[in-house]
């Protein structure tokens, strides 16, 4: 199942402002691995992961048609 990836803040300098599609990723770790290969500059950048707007940690399964957001440190206010 395809996964849509969106990024914000400083990560847009690496991946741009448009959603990126990844064809197959069983979980978030597999997804990040694929993204790191496509965007080497992403490796070691600080961010947290949200799957369908919920912040997740560890290997989170992707059930299909998820939107995964990579969120660098927040800077509101």
């Amino acid at each position: 199942m395809p996964v849509q990836v969106i990024v914000f803040g400083q990560l847009t300098d690496i991946m741009g402002n448009n959603p990126v599609m990844v064809e197959h990723a069983a979980d978030t770790s597999e997804l990040i691995e694929q993204l790191n290969q496509r965007y080497p500059a992403l490796v070691n950048k600080p961010y947290i992961i949200a799957v369908d707007k919920q912040i997740v940690t560890g290997h989170t399964a992707l059930s299909g048609n998820n939107t995964v957001a990579l969120l660098p440190p927040f800077a509101g206010g």
Binding site: G9, F74, G76
Partner: peptide, 10 residues
């Protein structure tokens, strides 16, 4: 708000 809202500033 500063710690938890996904907002960024350039």
């Amino acid at each position: 708000l500063k710690a938890e809202l996904p907002i960024w500033g350039k």
